[in-house]
């Protein structure tokens, strides 16, 4: 999916077709294509771009009678309010820790899994391994968190039973501030690792068999084959995926964090997204919540641009 973004970009930048038709001739020739693309443009325009226009709410005092953009100009008032808030640093830290840990572990795990599955011989076994590992991808987040709660319940959960076998006492991982991030990240890897490895396995299946032959003739061991043949073949895919994920450096999965939150783990589980929901939707401080949300989006965008610039320099590839 990501590599096709590359493709999209490439085909987009290569000048195609002949130079300018007049507007009238263009419409006469292509009106059917316009007809096909316009509904999608309309939906995206309405549901994605109109809210972007509404971002100015972050700089205005929301006025219930004046509607989306009618309030008085307030400048940076709501941003200052956020920066001065005692919650600013904890929120930023929690959001950053959860998303960066997920990003790093979630980036490395599928690579390792793909390299490993690629070594499994026999079409059937390999296929089974693949199919089984990406099954959890389709389980809903509500069910995932429900399973976590059932398994990690300190009195009746599976974990407590397993610990008892080893003579250990029960633990309450869901109410433990130091366990929140590991539980969040591990369950995330459990759910998505197999699915995210598909794209690497596809790249690995395109490796020229002659490369293996040549390396073996040179006496390469299996680990050396992985290190010097397999790994380099997936580096381009890795770069693309890394840039794309960098754009979400402050994007925590709102739904999962929200569902995993409880009063015990709140000091580490309150993130920007959940705070925006509470401030905005639950206590209707619309302008303030919009400002916090915009802050989050802008940080993400800065990271995306930085990652893109680095990638352009290092690997000659970039999103734009």
């Amino acid at each position: 999916m990501t590599e096709s973004l590359v493709a999209a970009r490439k085909s987009v930048s290569g000048a195609q077709g002949r130079t300018g038709l007049g507007a009238g001739r263009h419409v006469r020739r292509y009106w059917q294509l316009w007809l096909m693309v316009l509904p999608a443009v309309g939906f995206i325009g309405l549901f994605m771009y109109v809210p972007m226009y509404g971002i100015q709410l972050a700089f205005r005092d929301f006025d219930f009678t004046a509607g989306l953009t009618g309030g008085d100009w307030a400048g940076l008032k709501y941003f200052r309010q956020f920066f001065d808030s005692p919650l600013f640093w904890p929120l930023l830290r929690n959001t950053f820790v959860i998303s960066v840990t997920t990003l790093v572990v979630g980036f490395v795990a599928p690579i390792v899994l793909a390299l490993m599955i690629n070594q499994v011989g026999g079409g059937r076994r390999k296929k089974f391994m693949q199919t089984a590992t990406y099954l959890p991808h389709f389980i809903s987040i509500v069910v995932i968190v429900g399973m976590l709660q059932a398994f990690l319940n300190p009195s009746t959960g599976l974990l407590t039973r397993v610990l008892a076998v080893f003579g250990l006492d029960e633990v309450n991982l869901l109410g433990d501030t130091s366990a929140f991030v590991p539980v969040y990240v591990i369950s995330d890897v459990w759910q998505h690792c197999g699915w995210n490895s598909i794209i690497y396995l596809a790249a690995l299946s395109r490796v020229d068999p002659q490369l293996y032959e040549a390396a073996k003739v040179d006496g390469a061991s299996r680990l050396q084959l992985i290190r010097h043949v397999d790994f380099p073949s997936i580096v381009p895919t890795m770069v693309v995926l890394l840039i794309l994920t960098m754009g979400g450096v402050l994007n925590t999965g709102f739904e999962k964090v929200w569902l995993m939150q409880n009063t015990l783990n709140l000091p580490v589980s309150e993130v920007i997204a959940t705070y925006v929901y509470k401030i905005g939707i639950l206590s209707t401080q619309f302008s303030y919540a919009t400002a916090i949300g915009l802050f989050n989006t802008v940080i993400n965008f800065v990271f995306l641009i930085a990652a893109n610039a680095i990638a352009r320099r290092v690997s000659n590839w970039s999103l734009w």
Binding site: A8, I44, M48, P51, M52, L68, T290, N296, T297
Partner: peptide, 17 residues
């Protein structure tokens, strides 16, 4: 289209819309 993958209006403007 692709721009919306990386930038969006956020929860509150969406809610109000």
């Amino acid at each position: 289209f692709v721009f919306t993958l990386f930038f969006n209006g956020g929860l509150i403007p969406t809610y109000l819309l």
